[in-house]
C-alpha cells in the first residue's frame, strides 16, 4: 500500500543537509518576484522536524527586530530552498524546542555541541 503512495515526485532533490533540532541554520530561499529571482537567507534555530518523505517539514525560529520571535516552517524537500547551511550545532535533549518561546535574550541561548564540532573537523 505505502509503495503505491511513493514514487510520485521522482524529480525532487532528496540530497539535503542533515539538520537536527537545535541547529542554527541559514536557509537559502529562492524568491520569485515577477520574472526576477533572488535568494533570501533566513538564519535561525531549528525548532522542530516533523514528517517523513515528501511530507517532512522543519521550523526555524529567528529573533527579528525589537526582539520579536518569528517562526517559519519550510518543506524539507522544497525546490524553493536553494540549500541549507548549518552554522552551529547545539546540545539539546528534546526533539521539539518549544521552550525557546518562553525565553528571550541571553536565557534563550543553547549550549553548543562541542563533540559534533570536533567530529566534523576530523
Amino acid at each position: 500500500m505505502t509503495d503505491k503512495l511513493s514514487g510520485w515526485n521522482p524529480e525532487l532533490n532528496t540530497d539535503v543537509a542533515e539538520i537536527r533540532p537545535g541547529d542554527t541554520v541559514r536557509v537559502h530561499l529562492r524568491i520569485v518576484e515577477g520574472n526576477r529571482e533572488r535568494i533570501q537567507v533566513i538564519q535561525g534555530v531549528v525548532m522542530r522536524l516533523r514528517g517523513s518523505g515528501v511530507d517532512a517539514t522543519f521550523t526555524v525560529r529567528r529573533i527579528a527586530a525589537h526582539g520579536i520571535g518569528v517562526e517559519r516552517t519550510f518543506m524539507l524537500l522544497s525546490p524553493r530552498i536553494e540549500r541549507i547551511e548549518i552554522v552551529r550545532r547545539a546540545d539539546v535533549r528534546r526533539a521539539q524546542l518549544y521552550f525557546l518561546r518562553k525565553y528571550r535574550g541571553k536565557a534563550a541561548r543553547l549550549r553548543e555541541d562541542r563533540s559534533a564540532f570536533e567530529r566534523s573537523r576530523q
Binding site: M1, K4, L5, W8, P79
Partner: peptide, 21 residues
C-alpha cells in the same frame, strides 16, 4: 482508494492528491 500524498512541482507548488489504484 490507496491514500493521500502530495505532488511538488519545480517551482515548489504543492498539490494535494489522492492516489487510486
Amino acid at each position: 482508494k490507496v491514500g493521500m500524498t502530495r505532488l511538488v512541482d519545480k517551482t515548489g507548488e504543492v498539490i494535494p492528491v489522492t492516489i487510486v489504484e
